[in-house]
Amino acid sequence: MADTISVGATPSTLRPRLRRLAGTFGTGWNRIGEQTLFYALTIRSVGIAVVHYKAEIVRLIAQMSLGVGALALIGGTVVVVGFLTLSTGAIIAVQGYNQLSGVGVEALTGFVSAYINVRIIAPATAGVALAATIGAGATAQLGAMRIAEEIDALEVIGIRSIAYLASTRVLTGVIVVVPLYCIAALMAFAAARLGTIVLYGQSSGVYDHYFDTFLIPSDLLWSFVQTIAIAVVVMLIHTYYGYTASGGPAGVGEAVGRAVRASLVSAIFVLLLVSLAVYGQSGNFHLAI
Rank of each mutant, 00 (worst) to 15 (best):
T172L: 11
S275P: 13
V178E: 03
A124P: 02
G127L: 04
T244W: 05
S65I: 03
I5M: 08
H238T: 09
L142I: 11
A122Y: 02
I159L: 06
T4K: 08
T244G: 01
Y97C: 06
V7D: 12
V170T: 13
A185W: 11
R261P: 00
L215Q: 15
P123S: 03
R169I: 10
N98W: 08
I91T: 12
S101M: 04
D152I: 01
V58T: 13
I157L: 11
V128A: 13
S266A: 14
S113Y: 04
P123D: 06
P217L: 11
R59S: 04
L154M: 07
A107D: 05
A231V: 00
M64S: 08
Y279A: 10
A131K: 02
F285K: 03
A267F: 03
A184W: 10
I74R: 14
G201V: 13
I121R: 03
P11I: 06
L37H: 14
E106G: 11
S65F: 05
V50Y: 11
V176K: 02
A131N: 09
V80D: 00
L264M: 07
L21P: 02
F214Q: 09
L41C: 03
L236A: 05
A185D: 05
L60W: 07
A192W: 07
L264D: 03
G242L: 09
V170I: 14
L236W: 12
L272M: 07
S113A: 06
A22F: 07
L165N: 12
